[in-house]
């Protein structure tokens, strides 16, 4: 491979990875925006977004690559079910673990979130075992540049890469339209900006918090399913690393800021792919966290944030 082919290849990798981080980061940032909680369990909901559809397709006996109409016929319901279930799980986590602590000092729900994260990870390990588990290769993998366009290149851009982008972009766009254009989306933003005044507008604040957890969980679930279909592998602790990277993405974008989280996710995607290639995969985590710390110290409001995250 020529140097530029390597660069383009890693940039494509960064784009697909980053799309997944972006989806996770948007949920992270939404929850932070509304209740100022860093929901450490969010990455684990992403993991469940892989485990749950895996169980579904196993039960249905789907284990080979889908063809023709099956692609839409199987994937659409699979995404819907996954997103509904992970959304409901995230909502339940809030009701059970965080809601009783709504008026407690902020450290209490934060520690609880770490506990919830450990709990989900360990349950997942008991459920599917400690070893990496294969996810069936559902989506057809065609080398677009060589096989379809007849371009003679070593750059590998496949239908799977395209699939990731084609699913992620509309999801992010739909979310953006939801929060900026709809009545409930506006109520959600109002709740994030000033909870007490939102209540004084007749908004049921607890219902908005539920909606936020549901939406964030559904996005994380979609990200998990995309991850499974793209890499065809999952493991009980996968939410830990993805969650930390998505959190970094959210901080870079300005925590609480949704377009910021999407951009931050893409940025971390590119950065980690380039770092894997040009530095070493072993250093990628260190690099990501160095950036997280630099932002927390020097620009805690992130790139797009309009206010420091800590209002107290």
């Amino acid at each position: 491979m020529e140097w530029y082919e390597v660069l383009v290849q890693q940039t494509i990798n960064g784009l697909t990875r980053g799309s997944v981080f972006a989806l996770i980061a948007m949920g992270y940032t939404m929850v932070y925006g509304v209740i100022e909680l860093i929901n450490f369990a969010h990455g684990d909901v992403f993991m469940l977004g892989l485990f749950i559809p895996l169980t579904v397709v196993t039960l249905l006996g789907v284990s080979t690559t889908l063809v023709g109409w099956q692609i839409l016929g199987v994937l659409l319901p699979l995404f819907l079910v996954t997103m509904l279930v992970t959304g409901a799980i995230n909502l339940t986590i809030d009701r059970v673990a965080y809601r009783p602590l709504r008026r407690a000092p902020r450290l209490a729900p934060l520690i609880t979130a770490i506990g919830v994260s450990f709990m989900i990870e360990n349950l997942a390990m008991l459920w599917k075992g400690p070893a990496p588990i294969p996810f069936p290769d559902l989506f057809p993998n065609v080398d677009i540049l060589n096989a379809w366009l007849g371009i003679d290149t070593l750059i590998y851009f496949t239908t799977k890469d395209l699939f990731v982008v084609v699913v992620t972009l509309p999801l992010m766009l739909a979310l953006e339209l939801f929060v900026t254009r709809t009545r409930w989306g506006k109520a959600m933003r109002a709740t994030a900006q000033d909870r007490e005044t939102a209540a004084a507008m007749g908004i049921n604040v607890e219902r908005m918090i539920m909606l936020t957890f549901f939406t964030g969980g559904a996005l994380a679930g979609a990200a998990g399913l995309i991850q499974g279909m793209y890499y065809n592998i999952g493991q009980w602790w996968m939410g830990y690393q993805a969650g930390l990277r998505a959190f970094t993405a959210a901080v870079i974008g300005g925590i609480g800021n949704m377009p910021g989280a999407a951009l931050g996710g893409l940025f971390i995607g590119f950065l980690s792919a380039w770092s894997d290639q040009y530095i070493s995969a072993r250093w990628t985590n260190a690099l990501v966290f160095a950036i997280l710390i630099l932002f927390l110290v020097f620009r805690p409001q992130g790139l797009l944030g309009e206010r420091p995250p800590d209002r107290t």
């Binding site: 109002a190 000033d194 005044t197 004084a200």
Partner: peptide, 11 residues
């Protein structure tokens, strides 16, 4: 109309 106006600043 609450004390301090409490306008949603980013809307």
């Amino acid at each position: 109309a609450p004390e301090g106006r409490r306008i949603f600043p980013r809307m």
